[in-house]
Design a protein around this nucleic acid. Sequence first.
DNA 1: ATTGTAATCGGCAACGATTGCGTAGATTTT
DNA 2: AAAATCTACGCAATCGTTGCCGATTACAAT
Lengths: 336, 336
Amino acid sequence: MYKPATIKDIALALKLSPSTVSRALRDGYEISTATKKVVMEYAKKVNYQSNPIALSLKNRRSYSIGIVVPKLANSFFSQAIAGIESIAYERGYHTIITQTHDSSERELINVNHLAQRSVDGLLISMSAGTSDYGFLKQLHNDGLPIVFFDRIIDEIETFKVTSDNFSGAYNATESLIKSGRKKIALLSNAPQLSITNERLSGYMKALADYHIPFRAELIRNCSKGGNDYQEVEDAVKDLLAATDKPDAIFISSDRISISCIRALKSLNFDPKEIAIAGFSNSDVVDLLHPSLSYVKQKSFEMGQIAVEMLLRLIESKYPITEFETKILDTELHLIK
Amino acid sequence: MYKPATIKDIALALKLSPSTVSRALRDGYEISTATKKVVMEYAKKVNYQSNPIALSLKNRRSYSIGIVVPKLANSFFSQAIAGIESIAYERGYHTIITQTHDSSERELINVNHLAQRSVDGLLISMSAGTSDYGFLKQLHNDGLPIVFFDRIIDEIETFKVTSDNFSGAYNATESLIKSGRKKIALLSNAPQLSITNERLSGYMKALADYHIPFRAELIRNCSKGGNDYQEVEDAVKDLLAATDKPDAIFISSDRISISCIRALKSLNFDPKEIAIAGFSNSDVVDLLHPSLSYVKQKSFEMGQIAVEMLLRLIESKYPITEFETKILDTELHLIK
DNA sequence: ATTGTAATCGGCAACGATTGCGTAGATTTT
DNA sequence: AAAATCTACGCAATCGTTGCCGATTACAAT
């Protein structure tokens, strides 16, 4: 059985009391230099390390923060996590990463697990399927610091950070228009997500600004958000089977962008015939074929900002009542 | 301050002792049905959930397992994690995921953090930079169950699962040979990794079997394992600048495969002039251009097998002394 | 010699949950 | 009616750590 040395062990071996050992290790002022030296040396010898579980129980602080994202395999999220970690580690916090695979049930389980494990705070990007935020509201009201990133919600008042999805979508759509396309379809993400609607608005505004009539039949919702390839292929096939078929597609999600490319490839479509632009943070998006123009979010920075917000909440001595929602701009990369 | 209901709270409210409440909640036989009913109902009302921290401290069991991988952004690992979770959740365990970014220091910190957090066991795929396994040996000797996957090491005797890297490399190299290539370069991964040498051996064996002389000048080590793009580009550039330049490249790592493709693209190389094949578990590898034949590992299955091994170790009543190293075969996907 | 005052350390309790043991009171047995 | 048995619950210890208070000692000030 795995059993590391404890303060008691040291106390017993050195014929001291646990409290003395504890204070000696933390360099307390009331302990003599000699005792400190003996304790420190013995502690090093037996490789003593304080038990974070016991500390968590006693202090109700764990110096760890919980991360809940839909999918690690999604580049955007793994980049955001890297950003979170870059700051968290620096500030002495550990991270506990969990993924929900866009399942509400899994999300509930993970969030509760993290809360019970007494993480000091929570960074969360909501799952597509979640519509009941009661469990989060509960935790938030009970005082658990929470920061939302990317897929944020209105129902809870706290710090949030997300991308300028409207402009991102606007710019991408505009670029398609400027390259001469007029019949621009939209592959949209799960409709309950905040980002989905913002991107839809950007798409519509761009059409309007360029006097292109909005055509509902060019919109396809992929409510499974690219987790289901078949859904996307069916949508693409359907779009391209129309008599007045689109000459471009704007895709409002990373995973759906990939699926759309795969669909176009498997349907053997001439890339010149149909232009595509979409959101993507894939680190190989520039190598894909058929190629697409893409809107890239500042994922790493978003992670950094989110965790900084969270640490402000956690380490603030007084309750914070003024919250901020930060919007990061996006980068449009056009195909050469 | 976030403060969930405790057993004491319930005891106080119901004028019972904590022990009675505890036993009532666990449906102990010595508690009257009436009391149980009262306790259960009140517990539900205040949304009581047992504190895992306290339980961990008392039982030295946490029903959580630690996962340590080099990089979440690497598809292979995020797929393996999905496999791990699929089994772990089913069996009532939580997972705590950490990544090292191939840094030994980070690996040490993460492993210790997990051990101290009293995870019941550890699933680890080693970082490229690690050469001192002392800290793992220590934990293992102290009785912490550990299972290695993918990037395994010989120095510790326990369950392990990895891919048949030799055959994977052999088959890929063979496919290049059969397509008429004779001057096959090798972009190799960090040399201290187990998988690197196995793949090198497979490459060499294929050359030998087809009577192609081994040429050391066609081997390039990317010791940073594709974490550094420039290293790969330099290697590719160097290879292709030679007078007797290769007509094919076999790449022994996922990340390096991607970097190599990018290098070839940025150097404007004709895909027909130089064929490439490499290990990759990217979920978009079939959409890349220039395209490559690829060796895909059974990542999801590997995760499942690893966690099953770990649970055997954790839940075994008697110490296990007979260990197994499972080798999964790989899938070769040729470009059409 | 007495009091004051640091310096140095130990004891107790608590964080939340579990559990062996003890026991008051009710019920049954003799 | 006395003794034995049961029922249903409480007490206290435990896990590792630390905060608070108290105790001991030495040494200086009075």
